[in-house]
């Protein structure tokens, strides 16, 4: 495995496992890369799997009796449990019933899209292709030369800043559309001045500063979303690659076979543990991106409506709206 990773990327550097790989130079607009093909494949897989799950989760025919309300299959039950948890426990207490209904498809799509991309990165597809490339060394595959660096698909699309930035742009646009629809231009400007224009006259002195800071915040929030996701994904994979490369690095430096074996075993075991952590991080980062988008949308809503929604909220397990808001805003900053 150490050798595979070493071959997959730069010799003696774990970054080789994380970096994207150009498949086709398209010119000034950029390159067609391995992570882009992974993203397309992941999206197709996502739509396919969720379509299958939707058929199992939706109400069946009347001939099935009460069984028609039961979701069949463990995977579909897992998908359903995630959706129900996100909707009822996380999104609705923050956004209220009306906005939850409106934005749930977007937020769930965002969560599952990022999750799929994160999880695909854990599968060592490039390494498998490196082996295939090594076997068919010298031959061409759709114009690509086969060698021990051959890989057309694999990697973590969400460890690509261009892709995470694209997702953040979508979130940014949706947040701003929601802001203008809910608050209007004047309300939006009022929000950016924290309502100081309606306060005592002497506070008008700080309005320009507050406005600049808040306006910067409007852009910084989605940028932070993009960088957080990108950095977490890169960090996890760099750590994994570093652990797995310990043995080969020692081997290149002339360590004895016994020492290389011992170091490889220990670092390999640590890598297995970190892989489990990576699976958790994949879920966590998908959730954070989605949840903070929901929080940013809800921050741009009329407070009265939310309070009104929460007066009728009888969920005892849901934390109070303001607590969620405060926590989420702190996390966002």
């Amino acid at each position: 495995m150490d050798l595979l990773l070493a071959k997959a990327g730069e010799p003696h550097t774990p970054l080789g496992h994380v970096l994207d790989k150009t498949l086709l130079d398209v010119g000034v607009i950029g390159d067609l890369t391995m992570q882009m093909t992974t993203m397309v494949m992941g999206a197709i897989l996502l739509v396919f799997l969720l379509s299958r799950s939707a058929k199992r989760i939706q109400t069946g025919s009347e001939a099935e009796g009460n069984e028609r309300y039961i979701t069949k299959g463990r995977f579909n039950q897992l998908i359903e449990a995630i959706i129900v948890y996100l909707r009822d426990v996380m999104i609705e207490p923050v956004m209220g019933e009306k906005d939850t209904k409106r934005y749930l498809p977007f937020l769930l799509s965002l969560f599952f899209f990022i999750l799929t991309m994160n999880l695909l990165g854990i599968i060592p597809l490039p390494d498998v292709q490196n082996i295939i490339g090594k076997i068919f060394d010298g031959q061409t595959f759709f114009g690509l030369k086969m060698n021990d660096h051959f890989a057309v698909i694999g990697g973590t699309p969400t460890s690509n800043i261009s892709i995470t930035f694209g997702l953040a742009v979508i979130s940014f646009i949706l947040i701003q559309i929601h802001s203008f629809r809910e608050l209007g231009i004047l309300g939006w400007l009022d929000h950016l001045t924290c309502g100081l224009c309606r306060g005592p006259k002497f506070l008008l002195l700080v309005v320009p500063v507050v406005f600049v800071v808040e306006l910067a915040g409007v852009f910084i929030k989605p940028i932070a979303l993009a960088i957080r996701l990108f950095a977490n994904m890169v960090g996890g994979h760099v750590l994994l690659a570093t652990l797995l490369l310990f043995g080969s690095d020692f081997m290149f430096r002339g360590a004895s076979p016994g020492a290389v074996t011992a170091i490889s075993l220990v670092s390999g075991l640590a890598a297995v543990v970190i892989t489990f952590l990576e699976i958790f991080v994949a879920f966590l980062q998908a959730f954070i991106f989605m949840f903070l988008t929901a929080v940013f949308i809800s921050l741009m809503s009329h407070g009265d409506e939310h309070d009104h929604d929460h007066e009728h909220d009888s969920e005892p397990i849901s934390p109070p709206f303001h607590e969620n808001h405060e926590g989420a805003v702190k996390a966002a900053h």
Binding site: D20, G30, D31, L32, M36, M39, V40, S162, F165, G166
Partner: peptide
């Protein structure tokens, strides 16, 4: 990578 960005979107 602009292409990756646009493709992502």
């Amino acid at each position: 990578n602009v292409l990756a960005n646009v493709t992502g979107i």
